[in-house]
Design a protein around this nucleic acid. Structure first.
Ligand SMILES: [Mn+2]
Ligand SMILES: [Mn+2]
Ligand SMILES: [Zn+2]
Ligand SMILES: [Zn+2]
Lengths: 141, 141
DNA sequence: CTGAAATTGATAATCATTATCAAAAGAATA
DNA sequence: TATTCTTTTGATAATGATTATCAATTTCAG
């Protein structure tokens, strides 16, 4: 899936720097990537890329809601480009993350329960932890 | 809710030390607590408690599935005593965590979707992020 | 009770993230 | 295109969080 990164940056009032474009493209290629993965891939394209620049940009892009952070048990947070709401399959062994679309009933059920508790629900995170096919096949338990 | 901590420890083959008992009681009182909260409360009961001891015990208790870790966006992980599966309301402002019981449809829906992707689902995490009543009332946006 | 094995507390080492700041680059404007 | 103002970057220092180390202490099975 191709993303018009430059347009996205302008929409959010951020200057279009080659570093930012590279970082967003790196995340987009991975689908879901942690800071180190982003840094490594971005560095391959843009040699002078600094780790501090990756941190700073990822943080501000999350605040601007252009990136979404996935806080995972046992692994460093992964980041993805914000798109339609969806859920994730997370492998406990290798940490891989895959998108899935959970039915909308859940969102509704969740929103209803939240309001009963007088809680203003804003977004729902669903992560299914388990083992991916590759890890099961390789007997990595 | 009272928990028989000593019994739990023995069941999991861990030695019953006053530090462990204190740590588990601290978590139980909070319901959901991060490392620092556990440390502070435990220290109040057991003066010589070391932060390293809290880290070591929490880590091993999570591995033994006696504690569950909640990895949250923007806040340090919180820990809770493992009980029946349930979901959480997480306030983006104050970080408070409250239990809710989502319908079982979700578990089933999730398990079904996971198997389609050839993924062996083990446990599901649902966090609803938003604003708690207290934070809304105090106009903390 | 004893003694082997596990645990603890103190703290050093390591790893992750944020802060600092001078130099470089983006973009608005003339 | 040149000027200027502001943001961003890269290098690295500072801070914060977590893990490792290890001698002393404690648990608990026998
Ligand atoms: Mn995703
Ligand atoms: Mn809970
Ligand atoms: Zn895997
Ligand atoms: Zn709140």
């Amino acid at each position: 899936m191709k993303i018009d990164v430059i347009k996205k940056l302008k929409e959010h009032g951020l200057k279009v720097t080659p570093q930012r474009v590279t970082i967003l493209n790196a995340i987009n290629e991975y689908g879901h990537a942690n800071i180190d993965e982003i840094y490594q891939k971005a560095k391959a394209t843009h040699y002078s890329m600094s780790l501090a620049t990756v941190y700073k940009n990822v943080t501000s892009l999350v605040e601007l809601n252009l990136l979404k952070e996935l806080s995972l048990n046992s692994f460093k947070s992964k980041y993805e480009i914000v798109k339609e709401p969806h859920s994730h399959l997370v492998c406990k062994k290798c940490g891989s993350v895959e998108d899935i679309e959970l039915s909308q009933e859940i969102e509704q059920n969740a929103a209803a329960l939240a309001s009963i508790k007088d809680f203003e629900a804003q977004d729902i995170e669903v992560e299914i932890y388990g083992l991916c096919r590759e890890c099961r096949e390789q007997g990595r338990v």
